[in-house]
Design a protein around this nucleic acid. Sequence first.
RNA 1: GGGAGCAUAGCUCAGCUGGUUCAGAGCAUCUGCCUUACAAGCAGAGGGUCAGGGGUUCGAAUCCCUUUGCUCCCACCA
Length: 874
Amino acid sequence: MQLADKYLPETIEQKWYDFWIDNNLFHSEPDEREPYTIVIPPPNVTGMLHMGHMLNNTLQDVLVRRARMQGKNACWVPGTDHASIATEAKVVAKLKAEGIDKSSLTREEFLKHAWEWKEKHGGIILQQLRKLGASCDWERTCFTMDEARSAGVIKVFVDLFRKGRIYRGVRMVNWDPSAQTALSDEEVVYKESQGKLYYLRYQVEGSDKYIVVATTRPETILGDTALCVNPNDERYKWLADDARVIVPLVGRSIPVIRDEYVDLEFGTGALKVTPAHDVNDYMLGEKFGLEAIDIFNDNGTINDKVGMYVGMERFECRRVIEGDLAAANLLEKVEPYTNNVGFSERTGVAIEPKLSMQWFLSMEELAKPATTAVLEDIIKFVPAKYKNTYRHWMDNIKDWCISRQLWWGQRIPAYYLPKGGYVVAETAEEALALAQEKDASLTMADLRQDEDVLDTWFSSWLWPISVFDGLRYPNNPEIEYYYPTNDLVTGPDIIFFWVARMIMAGYEWRNEKPFGNVYFTGIVRDKLGRKMSKQLGNSPDPLDLIAKYGADGMRVAMLMSTSAGNDVMFDEALCEQGRNFGNKIWNAYRLINMWEVDEKLEQSEACREAIEWFDEVMTERVARIDRDMEQYRISEAFTELYRLFWDDFSGWYLEMVKPAYQQPADAKTIARTKHYFDMLLRLLHPFMPFITEEIWQDLKPEADVKSIVIARQPAADREANEQILARFTLAQEAISAIRNVRKQKNIAQKEPLTLNYIADENYPAEYAAVIEKMGNLKQIEAVTEKDSTAAAFIIKTTQYFIPMEGKIDREAELKKLAEDLTYYEGFLSSVMKKLSNERFVSSAPEKVVANERAKQADAEAKIAAIKEQMAALQ
RNA sequence: GGGAGCAUAGCUCAGCUGGUUCAGAGCAUCUGCCUUACAAGCAGAGGGUCAGGGGUUCGAAUCCCUUUGCUCCCACCA
């Protein structure tokens, strides 16, 4: 095949992806092989691919492709998440842009729009993943809201309800006034915000005295139902036990209560109590039997309960009230104040603590086996530091608010009866049957299903089970075969949202872990360390990068910069490096592809030596890469391969076996070289699938294997011969030294040189042919006499000379030797210090002491050799 | 407020159970090369008090204590 002199990824990537799909190489069915399963962290159905997905999916693809090449039945299940809040918000916005208000639509009408939107935009992200080369089993693509997944969710809800784990009640929840739904604690993000601390005057009833209260939220005075001070506070001892105060502006009379909850140090030591709008106030309210006055509408505007500021937006109200308070002389002062405010993770608006009727899942029982599994490494976290985070959260787990006041999602299967009470069932028919047990006269028309849907995570937590339909059909062959999955690759930011809950669900419905290992990636940041975000505009579009550098180049960039749990400082230069590596592989192949075979040609000695050495290199590296991969040191494994290919194979091996220009090569060497190339391609394939397939198909090492995707991963079947590797290093050092001489003396590589050496045990005679070829030497000769006119160097203890005929600068040579001498003498003395230390010799392990003795001998020999050369020069 | 982690070359990071010439790699920089596979390349070079201090040890980048700086998680005193 005629090959372009540069690797052009864009010309081959689509071709091979189609080939893989056409040949069904990513599809898995249960069989007798060992399964290897990964379920994708489902991206939002309407989402777009970002750098985080690139990182995450590159890693998953590496793992799954490698497993596939190890002969396992590899199955990577893709899918998307319905992301109820995010998607509903997008649909509402889209409708609004078209002039349609959500409130003007019925639930059914709205859902029709939402499904249309999903059909149109959903799955774009999965198409994008194909560009990256993701080897997902697309036939298995799931959606958290498709029929099977939804049925599983409903079944689980009913199951939990019957087990008594789900309850309904009025609680203080995090209210998102934009999405107009409750949120779980995990969906609230706290951020430091610049606010103000307002000091308000509450007049004591029947007196002209005031109590000053500090608050960050003056608008909530509308809901005040008490004022609280610490019973130990000397400042308020004068207050009568049954004292009452007047709420500023509102004029309502409220009691003064006393509770040690109040911090004496904060503000004035007096606290206004608004049970409907603050978690702590709510608890005080419960304790003292206070009324809770909810002053907000669901959208965050003031309601008509109090009859003031009605319809005003909450922050607007705060500004207006500040003015009114000041005008009424009820505002003592205002100070700037920084505090933490909770914001909705999805819509970004400030959360309103609000009392409302919601569904909750009791978590304590679920958490028990899930905690044990991680602490005892039944499920292994990589890196392990996240075990602590996990344990802390699990030990303090709180009940999960699972209802959302949205339409996009699985509707809660609770059915209310006309005379109060409700039943929970998987279908309306079953619900009716249950209802009729209570009242035989009820008909379907009497039942009213709960309006709320379930939290998205209430479907995501079932993902490893639900993708195999293991909830509806717990004994089906697929779930039995693929479950538990092997590895989960995800970000630590969703450890509570998702990872912990999947573990709980796994034990609850399978009585088994959902996955064996969790690999936590870091966050992708820009090179300044900032998190990539749309707002900052610092996130490149991954598809642009793929177009520019190729998918393999992009993958390499991700692989080079990641280690488990650490953030990725992304720099486009890494993509370039990845592309360059692809080009390097390409050109190495061009080289061997261009060789002519001469069947009659004998293998040269240099080739034989090179092969003897490279066999050991491959053996050693394959073992090292295996070790790294077993420990999920994926970046290290790749770096190892990168250096193996670039330095050892291209830089050394190919240069050693390369025939002279337009000369043929012998068949034996070509065969061996192609064998190495084949091995390297297979090792590289999980990391760089496209270029390896392109070349492998041309190389065709195995006629009966149709793709490298299903070729076998090389395995280390023996120990590498350390002796050969060490001896060869001596030859490499000699070659480097010759190159140095050339550089210093300004001698072109083309000009052949003579190399003389004084033979000793450190002269690698068995690799002389390699030294000759790589050094471009016309001859190598053993001598006994030092040559003061030659350029000289010492490798270990062997003295080498390159005759120079007067080109030698004696002074410079002597100076360099003197520097070497100083270094080695210093080194020797540090070794001797250790060896003469009685305590070192007696307490250090035998091996270490022996090593020091060897260092001593080497250093002494080296020093002797340097001295001899210096003497010869004088 | 509680907890975890990090600090090694200009940058990004390796350095695994303390022990080789241990102070490394890649990128960047500098020097010399368009040498017929590759200038997206080749051959070289410079560059670090392993954050500061103390300790344990025959021996510390590595273990312990401490100071400083940064990051993250949890909690949420109005």
